[in-house]
């Protein structure tokens, strides 16, 4: 696989949010404004890049049995660094992301990529994979945030949009709107990408319900 394919698969074909359905919590929570979505995407991409590089470099040293705790500690370390950097240099972003910044630790995309990709591949491949996945995550977040901000608040990155600003559908920026827009986007992806990979093709590794579901192992549709 060449590096370009490796990078671009994260954007559309294996988009972590819309196709692999990972990282739903931050996607729903931080997509109320485009600026917040970009910040969240950037923070998660940096953590993903660092953790993928380090995990891939250490893949022969980390014992298989304790790999999940090791991964979590590494990821938590990088999240703490990003958290401190954001607090120091972008306090406004820190305020708008709030609790979701430390929660990048339990973002399934990062642990999922460590399990599915970084521990099996070379450092360079893992880094490119992380960049692609991070870009895919940011892209999906921004797409959702654009829909929600434009219709819900009548603005785009803070710029007012004529007509829409006077006819806000404020429910779009609230919790129900998040679920609704996300549902619609996944339905659109289902409609237009008929041959998207089934969950069983990329395994249960990144799915938090894997331990009780086990359906992908049996080749069935996941819960």
């Amino acid at each position: 696989m060449n590096q370009l394919q490796n990078f671009s698969k994260g954007l559309i074909k294996e988009n972590p949010v819309l196709v692999l359905i990972l990282g739903t919590c931050p996607t729903l929570a931080t997509s109320t404004s485009v600026t917040g979505a970009l910040g969240m995407g950037a923070a998660a991409t940096i953590v993903l890049l660092c953790s993928n590089i380090v995990i891939s470099a250490l893949r022969k040293i980390i014992p298989d049995k304790v790999r999940i705790p090791c991964f979590i500690v590494l990821i938590a370390g990088f999240v703490t660094m990003v958290q401190m950097l954001v607090k120091a240099f972008a306090p406004a972003l820190d305020a708008s992301l709030g609790i979701y910044l430390p929660l990048i630790v339990v973002n399934c995309i990062i642990l999922g990529r460590a399990e599915m990709f970084a521990q099996k591949n070379k450092v360079l491949d893992s880094a490119v994979d992380a960049l692609g996945m991070g870009a895919g995550f940011t892209l999906a977040l921004c797409l959702m945030a654009t829909i929600r901000e434009v219709f819900g608040a009548g603005t785009f990155m803070g710029m007012e949009i004529p007509v829409l600003i006077d006819n806000k559908i404020s429910i779009m920026t609230m919790a129900p709107g998040g679920f609704f827009v996300f549902g619609l986007l996944i339905a659109i992806v289902n409609k237009f990408f008929k041959n998207k990979p089934k969950k069983k093709d990329f395994g249960c590794a990144g799915c938090p319900s894997a331990a009780i579901c086990r359906k992908a192992e049996l080749g069935e549709e996941c819960a």
Partner: peptide
Amino acid sequence: SRFLGICP
């Protein structure tokens, strides 16, 4: 309303 624990 806080979107935590969506996966389970």
